[in-house]
Design a binder for these strands. Structure first.
Length: 509
RNA sequence: GGGCUUGUAACUCAGCGGUAGAGUAUCUGCCUUUUAAGCAGAGAGUCGACGGUUCAAAUCCGUCCAGGCUCACCA
């Protein structure tokens, strides 16, 4: 018998013993008079009144001493020590207590008191089991040394933490806290936008055509319609349809799916917020980005100064705004402002940048930026005025048709937001999408596809609009000081373990 | 995809050619104020998988599986 089965077997035996004692091991209804946090907050009053309280929670520690015993019970608000005496709770209750295992959900009825060693506890008058844990939780022990918590045998295996996130949440409060922060960040975005008269909407995840970004999609199939559908790579084109439809301020928070590589900052599904505002442009979007991010930092983590990887990142607005061309000049000395293909190509070659034969000067300029500038933008920086060539959905500048009104926000060397003065000229939009289609034919799997339905919508008239997208996961990483996206996703994508193979082999033996 | 690296008991780890180890957890006994409770004893492992070398493999070699770091690719 494997150890695993041995430990589980023992717990199953206890389950049976409880049943034999006519104890409901998984009762339907449970009574709780207060959360443990409330109990602790009312310590003095409860000791004075000797009032009976009922708490519930998971058993996190047990210390049995013959005819008495201690334990620690935790609910979501706090934990408290329980004290169980055989002569107080009676034989049957004490028997139930003895059949407790670490990880069981228990209900304790009792009165508040302070032990001889000074610990506020609850002295049980009645004990119950609310749900038995058949599988032993990993053992983590804590000790308080000089007021600091020292943890032993922490559940720290990264792979296990991701695969069994429920254990990570249960055993590592600091990791659970990441997801509390994440939730607060998202609800704070909502609060700011809702106060600003934005309407939250939901658009299709399953799309007959995908668009709004350069990326390879996931493909799925609808049986009844017998058509392939794509999981959205962005919400952009649907949100613009809503602007056309007369909603002046909309946003959507949701998952996008991109069938591409995975690394510390890319998960195949990730959360983005996209925001569209009629009668606004990319300058307004910069103001909005600053407001959302710096205000949220203050609201959620209490400061807009973040110390991360030994860098001090200052989210206090205003943030630097600089054009891509100027930043390239600043970091390399190279002046690409003339968009002269030969000149730019020569520079790329001299720096060892690989040249895609289909790339025009705009694409090359972007590559120079990515190679020499991106990683150096530690403080929040709006990189503005992108080449039109790489921005098929953004409006050109009035005085320079090679450049569009677009920005990307960089913090700590990586992209956090992308925004445009949205292209609303349907003739221009059609030409741009058609030239993307040509790139596709030349083998660019990430080029946009022509979405006739979207173009038709735009032909009815789309107001001048500013649009903005922010990567939520990366922002959560920044505020919670995590370097891996997996740490801020509850269930990051992992390769499945080949359990079936293992099991088959086991059975054969 | 390349390089480096990890995988041993439920958890955290040691062992790195000669009969599988420790602490915690679990079980048994003692124990009515403990708190990483204590003391005494016990059980628990296909040493990620499959091959190879060897008298002998957790240990050396190869392939594979799953992670991590990093570079490349990619928004």
């Amino acid at each position: 018998m494997s150890n695993d089965n041995q430990l589980i077997g023992l717990r199953k035996q206890k389950y049976k013993k409880l049943l034999a004692m006519n104890v409901q091991v998984y009762p339907n209804r449970v009574e709780r008079t207060m959360y443990i946090k409330e109990l602790i907050d009312q310590k003095d009053k409860l000791i004075e009144t000797n009032e009976t309280v009922k708490i519930t929670g998971r058993l996190k520690a047990m210390r049995r001493h013959g005819k008495i015993g201690f334990g620690n019970v935790e609910d979501e608000t706090a934990g408290i020590q329980i004290y169980v005496r055989k002569d107080v709770v009676g034989d049957e209750n004490y028997e139930i207590y003895k059949l407790y295992d670490l990880g069981d959900f228990v209900g304790i009825e009792g009165v508040a008191f302070v032990t001889e060693s000074g610990e506020f506890s609850i002295k049980a008058t009645k004990v119950a089991i609310l749900a038995k844990s058949l599988r032993p939780l990993p053992t983590v022990k804590e000790k308080i040394v000089d007021g600091k918590k020292v943890r032993y045998d922490e559940f720290s295996d990264i792979e296990l933490r991701y695969r069994k996130r429920y254990l990570d949440l249960l055993l590592n409060p600091q990791n659970k806290n990441i997801f509390i922060q994440r939730s607060k960040i998202i609800s704070n975005f909502r609060k700011i936008l809702d106060n600003d008269k934005f309407l939250e909407v939901e658009t299709p995840i399953l799309q007959p055509l995908y668009g709004g970004a350069n990326a390879r999609p996931f493909i799925t199939h609808h049986n009844t319609l017998n058509i392939d559908l794509y999981l959205r790579i962005a919400t952009e084109l649907y949100l613009k349809r809503l602007i056309i439809g007369g909603f002046e301020r909309v946003y959507e928070i949701g998952k996008n799916f991109r069938n591409e590589g995975m690394d510390k900052s890319h998960n195949p599904e990730f959360t983005a917020i996209e925001i569209y505002q009629a009668y606004a442009d990319y300058n307004d979007m910069m103001d909005l980005t600053e407001k959302l991010m710096s205000q949220t930092a203050i609201d959620v983590i209490g400061t807009d100064l973040i110390e991360f990887e030994e860098k001090k990142i200052n989210l206090k607005s205003p943030w630097r705004r600089a054009t891509m061309i100027d930043l390239i000049k600043e970091h390399t000395g190279f002046d690409a402002s003339d968009f002269d293909y030969e000149n730019i190509k020569n520079f790329c070659e001299s720096k060892g940048i690989e040249i895609d034969p289909n790339a025009g000067p705009g694409k090359l300029i972007t590559e120079i930026f990515e190679t020499f500038v991106e990683a150096k933008l530690i403080q929040p920086t709006f990189v503005t005025d992108f080449p039109k060539e790489v921005s098929p959905l953004a409006k050109t500048k009035p005085n320079d048709k090679k450049i569009v009104e677009r920005f990307e926000l960089y913090i700590n060397g990586s992209e956090f937001a992308n925004a445009f003065t949205e292209l609303n000229d349907p003739i221009d939009q059609r030409e741009r999408l058609e030239s993307q289609a040509k790139l596709r034919e030349l083998g660019d799997l990430e080029a946009n596809v022509v979405d006739e339905d979207f173009l038709e919508a735009m032909e009815y008239g789309m107001p001048p609009t500013g649009g903005l997208g922010i990567g939520i996961d990366r922002f959560v990483m920044l505020l919670t000081k995590n370097t891996s996206i997996k740490e801020v996703l509850l269930f990051p994508q992992m390769k499945p373990e080949e359990i079936s193979v293992k099991k088959k082999k086991k059975k054969k033996k």
